[in-house]
């Protein structure tokens, strides 16, 4: 049995391993146990950022102009819908489709490429879980307790047991 488990593990670990690290900063407003709005900021690691900024910042002014941001949104960010934006929202044990992100912005901060966006969906905190991770494990989503800013409820961050990739879970209590 041990051998079989080892072989299964070896098969799974062949695939990918994190090459990009994205820090997730969620800001959540809760009123009467209902989530009113969620604002996310993703900060990519400096090495990945340098590679992407080189491509995105076409006029090399170290800023992402509106046209450049539009290009990122259309060609890169939007395609993450296939990956549910690396965020599974589970309501009553059922994974929901990630709502269409609004107010997307891309900017450079301390040599890091950052994405900022919002989702507006009324959710009851009692039955809702946010799981961050990439099942392909090419990207590691990093969520520390201090990254989550929640008003009207308490944020609980825990490790996500995904069996073969690593992620984080955010619960509101």
């Amino acid at each position: 049995m041990k051998i079989i488990i080892s072989i299964i593990l070896l098969f799974n670990i062949l695939y990918a391993h994190p090459h990009t690290f994205i820090e997730v900063y969620p800001t959540i407003t809760v009123k009467h146990k209902t989530i009113e709005k969620i604002h996310f900021v993703w900060k990519m690691d400096e090495m990945t950022s340098s590679m992407l900024i080189m491509e995105f910042d076409v006029n090399a002014n170290n800023k992402l102009d509106p046209e450049e941001q539009h290009h990122i949104y259309e060609n890169y960010f939007n395609s993450l819908i296939d990956y549910n934006f690396y965020t599974d929202i589970t309501i009553n044990d059922k994974i929901e489709k990630f709502p269409k992100p609004k107010k997307f912005k891309a900017f450079i901060e301390n040599n890091k490429l950052c994405y900022s966006f919002e989702i507006e969906k009324k959710l009851n905190i009692t039955n809702t879980l946010f799981d961050f991770g990439d099942p392909d494990f090419f990207i590691a989503m990093i969520l520390k307790k201090e990254f989550a800013k929640v008003t009207g409820a308490e944020a609980v961050v825990s490790d996500l047991d995904n069996d073969f990739y690593f992620g984080y879970r955010l619960e509101l209590k």
Binding site: P18, F21, D45, A140, D161, N162, F166
Partner: peptide, 24 residues
């Protein structure tokens, strides 16, 4: 064993995350 693997994976990811940031 799966739990051990998850913990190991977490440590590998966190170490890489720190080293990646330190190198850059």
């Amino acid at each position: 064993m799966i739990e051990f693997y998850n913990q190991l994976l977490k440590q590998i990811v966190m170490l890489q995350y720190q080293l990646n940031s330190y190198i850059s």
